[in-house]
């Protein structure tokens, strides 16, 4: 990875302060994304994936959300502490986001052409005619005929709507694209179309991407490196090859064992026991220890530190930490 670093997240912590207690949605997070690189952010419901994305965009709803500590360094500048005006110039231009459900992220009373042109007009020094022209070009890029630019979101199918969202997100040629489960709401053949499109556009524009997903199949397909999240923590962080060939953290291994494998016949799945912990009342020590089949007595009292088990392969697990009595 000789490429220039685009985004660095250092010691980030985001909390939601609610009447039921404080939810530590993101804790002790350290991630890096180089130019042109795709990072997969994987985890189950409530792991903190979307909060991370909102944190990068500085869109964590406040209250109840609060960035408690850390830095988000984008092209050398810390995004935390920037004024709303400065942030508006970054969002949609430098960093864009694709949401899971295209129907709720598009405006139902604006034509798709207008919605793409809106971003262009906002961020680039162009007149209306030029913006409209750019909108049509973007539609073509995502495989929608330009003449459909005058139609409304409800006139498109789910897959087409997600293409429109992608067109909006890429209209200003952002450096970083955050895609939050972009294909979860789509059927598998349409998902394949959209993933293919995202891959080719990413190469064309040399965009870096954060792909939020719960599907390890999508990770295998589009990501360069992966961060696995559990209860607000990145518990394993490495490149794709390491993750698939030598996963280390018991949770990561448990995730792999939970997926029915289409390439072989497994009679019985070997799922992780138990349930996701209550986010307001996380277990002491390692948050995964009550569900872990490798748990040791010390796991319930000591919080695992981020350990580099080999070059570029980080794991938060006491099994791999030095100086731990096992």
């Amino acid at each position: 990875m000789n490429n220039k670093m685009l985004l660095e997240i250092k010691d980030l912590a985001i909390h939601y302060i609610t009447v039921d207690g404080t939810v530590k949605a993101v804790q002790d997070m350290n991630l890096e994304i180089a130019e042109g690189e795709t990072l997969g952010l994987v985890g189950e419901t409530g792991a903190g994936k979307t909060t991370t994305a909102l944190g990068i965009m500085q869109l964590v709803p406040n209250p109840p959300g609060k960035i408690v500590s850390g830095e988000i360094i984008f092209e050398g500048e810390n995004l935390i502490g920037k004024s709303p005006n400065e942030l508006r110039k970054i969002r949609g231009k430098q960093i864009s986001m694709i949401f899971q459900d295209p129907m709720t992220s598009l405006n139902p009373v604006m034509t798709v052409g207008e919605q793409i042109a809106e971003v262009v007009k906002l961020h680039e020094n162009v007149n209306s005619a030029e913006a409209t022209e750019k909108a049509k070009q973007m539609l073509l890029k995502v495989g929608i005929p330009a003449e459909r630019s005058k139609e409304y979101p409800h006139q498109f199918s789910g897959g087409m709507r997600q293409r429109v969202v992608i067109a909006i997100a890429l209209a200003c040629n952002p450096k970083l694209l955050i895609a939050d489960e972009p294909t979860t709401a789509l059927d598998v053949t349409i998902q394949a179309q959209v993933l293919e499109l995202m891959k080719s556009l990413k190469t064309e524009f040399n965009t870096s991407m954060i792909m939020i997903t719960h599907d390890l199949g999508i990770v295998a397909e589009v990501c360069d490196k992966v961060a696995i999240m559990y209860a607000g923590n990145v518990i394993e962080y490495t490149d794709k090859v390491n993750l698939f060939t030598t996963p280390k953290h018991p949770y990561t291994i448990g995730l792999f064992n939970s997926i029915p494998d289409i390439e072989s016949d497994v009679e019985r799945l070997n799922p992780i026991k138990g349930l996701m912990p209550d986010p307001t009342d996380l277990p002491t020590g390692c948050p995964f220890h009550p569900r872990c089949d490798k748990a040791m007595p010390i796991c319930s009292t000591r919080v695992p530190a981020n350990t580099e088990v080999q070059m570029g392969h980080f794991v938060k697990c006491l099994l791999f930490e030095e100086g731990v009595v096992r």
Binding site: V188, T189, L195, G217, A220, E221, I259
Partner: peptide, 12 residues
């Protein structure tokens, strides 16, 4: 055939 080929497989 298309449906089966479209599944993202979690293997490298």
């Amino acid at each position: 055939q298309a449906l089966l080929s479209a599944i993202p497989v979690p293997r490298l």
